[in-house]
Each structure stands twice: as structure tokens, then as C-alpha cells.
Design a protein around this nucleic acid. Structure first.
Lengths: 144, 144
DNA sequence: TATAAATAGGATAAATTTATCCGAAATTAA
DNA sequence: TTAATTTCGGATAAATTTATCCTATTTATA
């Protein structure tokens, strides 16, 4: 469904959010350990998130990654996915046609529409905050 | 969503179904032209479908690919997807956890569940026949 | 039986995604 | 100002997916 990069990006953002809510900056090393991902690759993805203004980075000693309190509340899963994978998950044609719309649909166009919309809805209505709270309360997990 | 291989496989199966319903066998060349896919690669995927008993191949002069009338009616999209991509589309964890279930869910487990199930439902309830009929009647298209 | 027409399948190449490495730049603090 | 710490960014490598090429095998028919 998502690329590995996107999976790592989502989990990293959640982990940063948890720590930021407790006023701790975290390093790529900590992050990759906690979300069980390759460190250097994860660092690249973090830079994507920084460039897309989802995560804030602080260089130098005592630096690390953090997310502002209000960003944690307002950032939606869709923004993270878009920053890393773009929008072809719920935009591109299910069978790879260049042109696929109501007027010129691929064989599964209609059948996919509902699923795509449900997916978009979910991504656009799920905040980092919700996901972070579930981890903090032990309801869900970032690895294994 | 699907791999390129799977996209080609689905479109190829539909095209073969259309032609079989009119008692014509088709070659990889015809197929790849009609579904706009690389010929040799498509041929490999056809072999997957043959090995999975979804498509029938006839070697030698006047050979080609075909699908039995009853198979056209009974074959579901899910079988084609499974033959080519396996079942991780609606089985694997959305965030790539090795273990992700009700007892140990990833952060998006519940939110994905509904979408996954809708997807599975759709794939398991869509037959090759339906898709082929839509193409034949000009309602949907295999390329462009 | 020879020939032509097809699919089958192995080897290989190209492209993309995933992953690693290392030095540059920035920042804090001694 | 120097040293230590940390992110940034370019180069490169490994793995996977996508794609091509060539030969073997099978089959119908002249």
C-alpha cells in the first residue's frame, strides 16, 4: 500500500510527536531504534519531512528532531503520505491508465472509487496527535 | 496499489476473456498491443496466470491464450491478484510491522481494517466476466 | 517428416526503491 | 576559538521490480 519510505516516515513522525509532547528532541539513531528501521535511510526521510515543514530539525549539540505542539494536533496522515509518496495512492488509476476518469474509465474505476475515497478520508481525518496518544497509552505499537 | 505486473495481468486476463468469448485465441503480441504493455514482460506474467490455472495456453501453430467460458464467469479479480502479487495487499500490516493484529496493532491497524476489507470484498466479488462485458459494451477501456 | 508458428523459460539488462557511507555545515559549550 | 555534537547532502551500493533477448520446446499442417 505505502512504500517502505512512507511507512518509516509515518512511524518516525509519531515517535517524534510523542517525545515532543514531553519536550524531548530525538535523533535519527533513537528514532530508527524505536521504529525498527535503517538509520541512514530514515534520516533521509526525516529530511523530506523537514523540507515539507512537518518536522522541525535543530542542528548542532543538543539538536535533534521535534514537532511543535500545535503541529502535532493539526498534522494529518495525508500530509505525511503526500510529502513522501505523493498523491498517486488515491489519485492514480488502479490499472495504470494514463487517462482514467468518468468519461474514460479503466475496468475497475468505479469499483476502486469508493475504496480510494475511504482511504483519502481516513488519511485526511487522522491526526498525528491521535496516533501518538494511542502509542502513549499502550493501545498500539510502533514495532515488532 | 498493485504492482505493474499485476496491472498487466488483470488487463491481459480481461482481453483474453473478451476474445475467448468470441472463440479467438490471442498471442502475447496482440495482448500487449491491446493493453499497452511490454510484450516479453507480459508474456512472463501470462505464464504466471497459466501456472495458476487462470489462463489456458495452447502451444504450437494456431496456439495462443484462452480462458474457458465457465472460468470467465467464475474467476474473480482476487485470484488474479493473488497469483501475481500474493495476498499482502489485504493481509500485511499497513506500516510494515511483522506482527500486527487485534492484540498488538500498529497505529493505523483499526483505521485500515475497514478499507482492507472493502478492498478484499471488491476483489472477491468482481468477476472477469463483468469486467469483460464492460469493455465489450464500450463502457470501460483497457488503455490510454 | 519437415517446416512454420507458437508458447516456455533461462540469462541478462535497465530502472527504481531501499539502504549505507562519509565529509560538510551548523550549533553549543568549554 | 576550539572541540564536541548533531543535522545536511552527495556519492555509492544493494535489492527488488520491470523489461528485453535469445533459444528450446511443442504442435499443426503441408
Amino acid at each position: 500500500m505505502f512504500s517502505k519510505a512512507c511507512e518509516y516516515g509515518i512511524k518516525a513522525a509519531i515517535f517524534i510527536a510523542i517525545n515532543s509532547s514531553e519536550h524531548r528532541r530525538v535523533s535519527p539513531k533513537e528514532i530508527s531504534e524505536e521504529i525498527d528501521s535503517p538509520q541512514a535511510f530514515t534520516a533521509k526521510i526525516l529530511q523530506d519531512l523537514v523540507r515539507n515543514d512537518i518536522v522541525k530539525s535543530v542542528r548542532g549539540a543538543h539538536g535533534g528532531f521535534e514537532i511543535d505542539k500545535d503541529k502535532i494536533a493539526t498534522t494529518k496522515l495525508s500530509q505525511i503520505v503526500f510529502a513522501i509518496d505523493g498523491d498517486n495512492i488515491y489519485k492514480g488509476c488502479g490499472l495504470g491508465l494514463h487517462t482514467c476518469d468518468e468519461n474514460h474509465p479503466c475496468p475497475v474505476h468505479d469499483k476502486f472509487k469508493a475504496i480510494r475515497e475511504e482511504l483519502r478520508d481516513m488519511l485526511e481525518n487522522t491526526s498525528l496527535e491521535q496516533l501518538a496518544l494511542d502509542i502513549k497509552s499502550g493501545v498500539s505499537f510502533l514495532k515488532i
